[in-house]
Every structure is written in C-alpha cells, then in structure tokens.
C-alpha cells in the first residue's frame, strides 16, 4: 500500500514535469476505471489473464523456480484453446467448453514442461530456457496462424464455435455494459482457490514449498525432487495457458497475434508484489488492470508511457520495501538470538 502511494507521488512528479496537473490526471484515471461499471468491467477483463500468469510465476517460485516463460505458455495455451474451438465446431457447449479449458491448460503445461524436464534431467537453468521458449512459442503461434490456419487479410485464426464461447457478463447480467469482462474471470478465481488448496492443504503442496525453501531438506527427507520440479513447472505452464481463454473464448472468439500484450511478463510483477500469495495475486492483478486500462483513458492528457513508468516505479519500490522489511526482520531476529 505504501509502495502504491509512493509510486503515485513519484508519478505525479513526472506528470507535472510534462506540464499536466497530476491531480486531474489521477482523478480521470480512477474515475474512468473505478467510477462506473463499464470501467470496472474493463479493469477486471484486463486483470483476468494477469491473475493466471501471476499464479503461474508464483507456483514456480514456490518450488524455487523462476518462470519467465508465462508469456510463451500463455500463447501456446491460447492457441490450443482456439484450435479446439474452431476444429470441433459441432460439439455441444457442455463438452466444448471443458475441452477448451483443458486444451489451454495442457498446451501451457506441455510447453512449460520442456523447461521443467531440462531442469530436472540436466540441471539446465530454467530462466534461460523459459526465455528462449518464449521466442519459439511466439514464432510458432505466428506460423500456425499465418500459414496453417490462415484467414486471408487478417492476423487471426478462424472464429471458434459459439458453443465454445465464455459469455460476457454484460450479456448475462446486464451490468458492466459494453465491457468484455467474461466468465473466464471465474476460471481465474477457481485457479487461485486450487493453488491455495494445493500449496497449503496437501502433502504435495507441502513438498513443493519445502523444495522452494530448502532444497537440501527436501532431498534429505527423500522427496522426489526431480518429479516435483517437473510437476511445478507443468502446473505453472497450465495456469499461464488458461490465460488465453479470456481473449479467445471470452472476447474476440479467435486468437489474434499479439493478443497477450505482455501479460506473461506483467505476471512476474504481479506475483512479486503479491509475494506469491494467491489472494494477493487477485488484488495485484486488479491493480495492474487499473493501470493498463487507466493508461488508455488518460491518453488524451498524458502519453501512455506515463503508465508504464508508474508500473515500473511500483515494482521498484515494492522490491526495495520487501528487502527493507526482510532486513529489519533479520536484524530483530539476530538481536534476539545473538549470544554465546
């Protein structure tokens, strides 16, 4: 919270520096995003994939792995969901929707598993591998869209069957009028619940946590470390892969190149700020959703880059505050036990 306020203050300096009134800009930012149901819908729409990519980074982090690959996993998962949607057009919705969800999860999980297996079997570093896999994933999806399933004069896939649509809330309820906020938000929330239950209530989650906190202790208590690494990476990829549903099944009904808008990378920041806590991830994702959509609303007053600067400042301050808290805790701890 402190970091958010501090970054808004620092952001104000930048806004003032380009000759605008910070108060006016912020007022517009918040009233346009939170002041009406359309804005809120837009924010939640933006937040949906961020929750999932945030979870993706967080669960890997819990296992002591740094998943930079959410972006690639998200793209592969999204393509898988889309492919199911435009291939099995005759299926009824109660089969096609679960199948699309499953395809997204498995697509992302398989893609992440490449890095997971390489890490577990050969010890090659997941950071490098997931970054490289991002490039490959984007190129692969681009190839599939342009060459294998092209729709002339567009950069998107064929439309998915209406039976695979995840309905928009404005259609279902009448509120959030006009915003693309859709049912996939509930999938994101369910994923948070799943992550919470898995990590804190099951023996498997206990093993993943232990691996992340003290690998030596995990090995000495005979946990199957290799299996845990592969499993955590697969789960991370699966969560990221679900992120595509929001755009593909919930909004445009086709996969368009560039749809992900770096959600995979922003997921890293989301997880970081939420300190890998699934409930914190929802809040952090909504906060970034506000900045994302809010950036568009204040475009007339200031350049969109101001929002990017704000995001960066939040992350920087967050990291230093975390560090600061950790350090003062450490000092206190040391003072309590420093002796003989």
């Amino acid at each position: 919270m402190i970091s958010v306020i501090t970054s808004l203050l620092i952001g104000a300096i930048f806004i003032a520096a380009i000759g605008q009134n910070p108060l006016e800009v912020y007022l517009q930012l918040f009233s346009q995003t939170l002041g009406n149901t359309y804005g809120i819908g837009q924010v939640l729409f933006k937040a949906t994939p961020l929750i999932l990519t945030g979870l993706s980074v967080a669960i890997a982090f819990k296992a002591g792995l740094f998943n930079i690959g959410a972006e690639g996993q998200l793209n592969i998962g999204a393509f898988a969901s889309a492919w199911v949607g435009f291939t099995f057009v005759t299926m009824p919705w109660y089969i096609l929707i679960p199948l699309s969800i499953l395809a997204g999860f498995i697509g992302g999980a398989l893609w992440a598993s490449i890095a997971g297996v390489l890490k577990a079997k050969f010890g090659s570093h997941e950071v490098i591998n997931t970054i490289m896999l991002n490039f490959i994933a984007l190129a692969l999806v681009s190839y599939l869209v342009n060459n294998i399933y092209p729709v002339p004069a567009t950069i998107h896939t064929p439309e998915i069957s209406p039976n695979a649509w995840l309905q928009r809330f404005d259609v279902l309820t009448g509120i959030f009028k006009g915003s693309p906020f859709n049912l996939s938000f509930l999938i994101a929330l369910a994923a948070c619940l799943l992550m919470y239950y898995l990590l804190w209530k099951t023996p498997l989650g206990y093993q993943i946590n232990t691996l992340g906190l003290n690998k030596g202790a995990a090995e000495y208590s005979k946990m199957n470390v290799k299996k845990l690494i592969m499993l955590s990476m697969a789960l991370a990829g699966g969560f990221a892969g679900l992120g595509g549903l929001n755009f593909v099944n919930g909004y445009k009904h086709y996969l368009e190149l560039g749809f992900s808008e770096n959600a995979g990378y922003i997921g890293i920041a989301v997880a970081l700020i939420a300190r890998n806590n699934p409930w914190g991830i929802i809040i952090a994702a909504i906060f970034f959703g506000i900045l994302e959509y809010g950036g568009l609303t204040i475009n007339t007053l200031v350049p969109k880059e101001i929002i990017t600067i704000l995001q960066a400042i939040v992350i920087l301050i967050m990291i230093s505050i975390n560090h600061f808290i950790a350090q003062s805790r450490y000092k206190k701890f040391n003072a309590g036990t420093a002796n003989g």
Binding site: K201, T202, P203, L204, Y206, Q207, T210, A217, Y220, S221, K222, M223
Partner: peptide
C-alpha cells in the same frame, strides 16, 4: 518433514 505421506498426517489430497 519427510513424514508428510504418513497416514497419520495426511491422505494424498489433504494434510
């Protein structure tokens, strides 16, 4: 630690 699979402490799905 190391005993998380003991039936006294967990089922496969729950601690």
């Amino acid at each position: 630690l190391g005993r998380e699979s003991e039936s006294g402490f967990s089922t496969p799905y729950h601690l």
